[in-house]
């Protein structure tokens, strides 16, 4: 008879009170495990890509258990293909649900994007046209996810490089309609707003003014890279491989002033720096969060 290692299947009891409030967190990267555990329990939270923890066992789960023991966790799905026209992958949804049950994350999110067509998985967050037809099945997919995980999902706004000739709605209207129809909450990626605004030629401030901020339950901040489009104009790439740009920090301060403190993640997924560099980015976000008190208590908030 096979003896399961005792801790591997049982849910881990929560050791903090939800919601986690206005704290700054970082992506969890395995190369930082020892540095994080060595520092003991700290304020903040860690976000992981769900798919990296969908193996049956082994070191990834041991690392995540160690992180989760003392810190709130954010489970960030990258591959559900919610924005694609084909039905959700039921096996993938079941795996996602099991991770939520096992690790009891404080935050659970996915993308307004697609990554699978027929049987091919493209490993990228691909864009969709914003129409009544796409709105219907995106809402249907989110209903299925929320039914499976028994809680509201945080849906993230994308960074995009192309537009669809067919699109008939603004992205903010599309996202607001999804939230109203499904009851989902929103993950506002401020870097994605900045990247898409540059690439699509709209105003990031107007986008934020149109965005349903009251539904935002998490914010992402990340670095981007610069390229050029066919006309030689600036094209920004959502690369997650460097520090948050100054312009994105400024947009973030504006959002926090309007919205009040929200859990905020520094996303850093390639060219991973040493832990103190990532920690310093999170500390900068925390300073902005701490400089802000809910408008209802202190009136206008001026971030530090």
């Amino acid at each position: 008879m096979t003896t399961e290692i005792a801790h591997s299947t049982s849910a881990i009891p929560l050791r903090y009170s939800t919601p986690i409030g206005g704290v700054a967190g970082t992506s969890f990267k395995p190369e930082h495990l020892q540095a994080i555990l060595g520092a003991g329990r700290q304020r903040g939270f860690f976000e992981v890509h769900a798919e990296n923890y969908m193996g049956a066992g082994g070191p990834p789960h041991r690392a995540l258990e160690a992180i989760r023991r003392d810190h709130p966790l954010s489970l960030h799905g990258v591959c559900m293909s919610i924005g694609g026209p084909q039905p959700l992958d039921k096996a993938h949804l079941a795996r996602f649900r099991s991770l939520v049950a096992r690790y009891q994350p404080a935050l659970v999110s996915e993308h307004l994007a697609w990554s699978t067509h027929e049987t091919s998985f493209f490993n990228d967050l691909l864009p969709l046209p914003y129409t009544e037809a796409t709105l219907r099945y995106v809402c249907d997919h989110i209903d299925q996810v929320q039914e499976a995980i028994r809680r509201p999902l945080l849906l993230e706004n994308p960074s995009t490089y192309v537009a669809f000739r067919d699109s008939s709605m603004a992205e903010t209207d599309f996202i607001r309609a999804i939230a109203e129809r499904t009851g989902c909450r929103l993950l506002l990626d401020v870097n994605n707003v900045f990247v898409s605004a540059t690439n699509q030629g709209f105003s990031a401030l107007e986008y934020l003014a149109d965005f349903p901020l009251s539904r935002v339950g998490e914010i992402h901040l990340a670095g981007h890279a610069e390229q050029a489009d066919d006309e030689g104009d600036l094209l920004l790439i959502d690369s997650h491989d460097g520090p948050v740009a100054d312009a994105v920090w400024r947009l973030y301060e504006i959002v926090i002033q309007r919205r009040g403190p929200v859990p905020t993640l520094i996303e850093w997924d390639s060219k991973i720096p040493d832990w103190p560099v990532l920690q310093a980015e999170a500390a900068a976000a925390q300073a902005i969060l701490d400089g802000c008190r809910p408008a209802a208590l202190v009136g206008d908030c001026h971030a530090a």
């Binding site: 490993n123 490089y161 192309v162 537009a163 669809f164 390229q227 050029a228 066919d230 006309e231 104009d233």
Partner: peptide, 27 residues
């Protein structure tokens, strides 16, 4: 793909190429 475009009538070539590159390089 003819269904995509850049904003304000701009071309989509190098824009779509970002997705091609992301897919191929990441895999």
């Amino acid at each position: 793909p003819a269904i995509v475009t850049g904003p304000n009538g701009k071309a989509a070539g190098r824009r779509y190429a970002v997705y091609r590159n992301n897919v191929t390089v990441s895999l």
